[in-house]
Simulated assay, not measured.
Amino acid sequence: MNEETPTMSETNTPPAAVLTRHADAETCSDPSSVITLLADSDGTTGGFTSYRSTFTRGGAGAPAHFHTRATELFFVINGALQVLVGEEVTVLKEGDFLAVPPHTPHAFAAAPGCEADVLFVFTPGMGRFDYLRLLGRVMRGEADPKEIAESSERFDNHYVDSPAWRAALEGSA
Rank of each mutant, 00 (worst) to 15 (best):
D130T: 09
V34W: 00
H106K: 05
S41R: 15
G59A: 02
M126I: 15
P102V: 06
L132G: 06
F155T: 05
T27R: 01
L37M: 09
A60I: 11
K146H: 10
V18K: 14
F48E: 01
E115R: 11
F122R: 07
P112A: 08
I148W: 03
T49Y: 06
G136S: 13
Q82D: 00
A164E: 00
I35P: 00
V100Q: 07
G113Q: 05
S151C: 08
A116V: 03
G136N: 07
V100R: 08
A168K: 00
A116R: 06
D40N: 14
N78W: 12
G95A: 12
A99G: 14
A25C: 02
N12T: 13
R69Y: 09
G113A: 03
S151P: 10
A25Y: 00
E72A: 12
A173M: 11
G125D: 05
D96A: 12
D24M: 14
L92Q: 11
N78D: 15
I77Q: 14
E10T: 00
S33W: 02
G125P: 00
F48H: 11
A16K: 15
A39K: 02
L135I: 09
P14Y: 10
S53H: 00
P63S: 09
G141H: 04
P163Y: 02
F129T: 01
S50F: 01
L38P: 01
G46I: 04
P63F: 09
T123R: 07
R137D: 15
V85W: 02
P14H: 08
F129K: 04
A80L: 05
H103K: 12
G46D: 10
P105F: 02
A17Q: 13
E94G: 08
G58L: 07
G113L: 02
E88F: 09
A173N: 07
A168R: 01
Q82K: 03
E147R: 15
T45I: 09
L119T: 10
H158W: 13
D161S: 08
A168L: 06
E26Y: 04
Y159I: 14
H158V: 12
F122P: 04
E153K: 14
A62R: 08
